[in-house]
Write a protein that binds this DNA or RNA. Sequence first.
DNA 1: CATAAAGTCAAGTGATCACTTCACTAAAGG
DNA 2: CCTTTAGTGAAGTGATCACTTGACTTTATG
Lengths: 107, 107
Amino acid sequence: MTSLSGIFAALSDDTRRAVLHQLKGGEAKVSNLASSFDMTLTGVSNHLQTLKNAGLIEIEKRGRTRYCRLKPHTLRLASNWFDDYEAFWDHQLDRIEDALTADKDPR
Amino acid sequence: MTSLSGIFAALSDDTRRAVLHQLKGGEAKVSNLASSFDMTLTGVSNHLQTLKNAGLIEIEKRGRTRYCRLKPHTLRLASNWFDDYEAFWDHQLDRIEDALTADKDPR
DNA sequence: CATAAAGTCAAGTGATCACTTCACTAAAGG
DNA sequence: CCTTTAGTGAAGTGATCACTTGACTTTATG
């Protein structure tokens, strides 16, 4: 389940975005991540499963601890969705510029 | 309610992303958008309210019809959230290169 | 071996979601 | 004025969500 809908749904939660933010600093233990939040370990674990299902992180077990790591590829995939719109908003700016130009020099 | 969470939540639905896609072609009537989906007009109207609350579109009433338009600024806001991670995923590529080099010449 | 540490799993709860139907308002057109 | 068109509002339903507690599994440590 690495659909766009799944990715955006995973990103639509403050806790989960905060986890991703923390993982920018490198891999982290589940319990370590959990200590940042006012929530049970189980609660955080649920969020991590959501992120994993969305393909945004991977969880590796070493000994009795789990280490979480970002999967940048999926982030990129989501980010790419906006590319089409970038073109659009540049267009908008152009039109605003055109309008300003037209106002300044209306002949 | 133009929070990142609200924006991503709004984007986490196929129907709503399809609406945004259609609006890239310019403004459109509610009923016009609705005709594309196998759903009641009320259903589509709900989705449009969600997009509006997220700040992703605006709805203007002219006569008895409503016209929907993209709000590129909000799209951009969401897009910008990924910028931090772009730096990270470039970094990852570097580390992979480093690892490859290390493997080749490990002494 | 006994205990602690790291975490998941299962089940339950209240909230929110997507979608529907039915009733309603507001603007045009005959 | 009467009807149609365009759409929203309210209420209800089944599904999913965020979070909890309590029991369980696995690995390390005294």
